[in-house]
Design a binder for these strands. Structure first.
Lengths: 231, 231
DNA sequence: TAGATTGTTAATCGATTAACAATC
DNA sequence: TAGATTGTTAATCGATTAACAATC
């Protein structure tokens, strides 16, 4: 447990997939898996999986493979899912509301404790069992309750400014859905951007490339099983 | 124009950011930009930008830099945004509805032409100016109208099956929001997965790593400006 | 012409794959 | 013991960075 080699971002981005698949194995009552089997299912190579898992230390057993529940727990631990970071969400429009209802915060290491908006028509309404608060009270709220992370579902005009405020209140994690690249100048902040429009353009680009070469001996970005399966 | 070197996925994922930033420059009436200036703003290196743009052919001019509107048009072209691919959306729950309203399909190369659900309470309601149809009529619809792409906002239980149906109807692009790794076994399909829960776990992981090392001489996944800014 | 900045090649760095000895 | 499969090192591949000649 814990080898403390630096974990590269490439590895981190693969961990949730391992997590999901191990959960599935577990619920199917499967208690043992080899890197080979995992690789086949996930569309990667056994070599990569062993390499990845060894960033943290040998969880497996030669000649046997990996113990599913144990590996699952280890990966949950590395992901930090037992943390229950407190989070607030800003911007309860269509997207904000969908995220509140659709995302499983609790099992992913977060607890959504309050949601804010600036629109008087939205303030006071219900969302995910909470009452939407006035963003004017944001600072006050953050001073009375420790807030670890913020989910930004704001229009891009206000994103940077609100983020700065949040930073001043001690928020250090940002899940950013606004069409804006947060550039908190601070070094001690973690940002995860979800740019839906960018994602859609990427799809458009790949579809277009694909057509150009019309399948076949493509110089195409990603017909491979691996990339399809991963992010 | 068009050098037809294979475009790597790393480059493709950076193009939308270039696109966004050039659009901003354009609306600010700036007509000229150097790789240096672009790099500073985007938190990358000038070298990388020049390298990226040269996958397609020299858009710049020595001693001058890049012509903003021209570069913008070239990148739009590479992204294929002029394509107007037809798309349908499956699953008009919270998330589906948010995507319909929040995502700018038209300017990203797609035209959303129909939306479907299987829930009788949802069928017949309005969403983004369209009437939600019964998914039972999906095949028929695809036979009468060519559908290039599908947006999947379904529960993971039905995602694979619906995707298979869509494939049989000729759909070759998938924007997948279901918590499921589509594994269309077919080689001629392009899939872009948006796994929100995975993204959230990634954030959790990075926040946790960060804490462990408590800032400072971290072996941490990404306090760097570059990674913060990009996906 | 002098200055700026590209296009492009070479050097470096990191991530993936292959191979195999260690060991259950 | 024989077979299986890991942990780990070495080889390959790709992506990023550095450097500089070409040229506007």
């Amino acid at each position: 447990m814990s080898k403390s080699n630096k974990i590269s971002m490439s590895v981190v981005r693969r961990l949730p997939r391992y997590y999901r698949f191990l959960l599935e194995l577990k619920s199917n009552g499967i208690y043992r898996v080899s890197s080979q089997a995992l690789a086949e299912r996930l569309g990667t190579s056994a070599s990569q999986i062993r390499q990845d898992l060894n960033c943290f230390g040998g969880f497996g057993q030669q000649g046997y493979g990996y113990d599913v529940p144990k590996l699952f727990d280890e990966i949950s631990g590395i992901l930090g899912l037992d943390n229950q970071y407190t989070a607030v969400l800003l911007g309860v429009g269509n997207l904000g509301r969908a995220i509140i209802n659709h995302v499983d915060f609790e099992s992913r290491g977060f607890k959504l404790t309050a949601v804010f908006d600036s629109n008087p028509d939205i303030i006071g309404t219900q969302a995910g069992g909470m009452t939407v608060r006035d963003v004017a009270g944001l600072k006050e709220h953050c001073q009375s309750v420790k807030v670890d992370a913020a989910v930004l579902c704001l229009p891009k005009e206000s994103a940077q400014q609100v983020a700065d405020n949040l930073y001043q209140c001690g928020v250090r994690g940002f899940w950013n859905f606004s069409h804006y690249d947060l550039s908190l100048k601070y070094g001690d902040v973690v940002t995860e951007n979800v740019h839906l429009n960018d994602s859609l353009m990427t799809l458009c680009c790949c579809m277009t490339e694909f057509r150009k070469k019309d399948g076949a001996e493509s110089s195409v970005p990603q017909p491979t099983a691996k990339e399809k399966a991963s992010k």
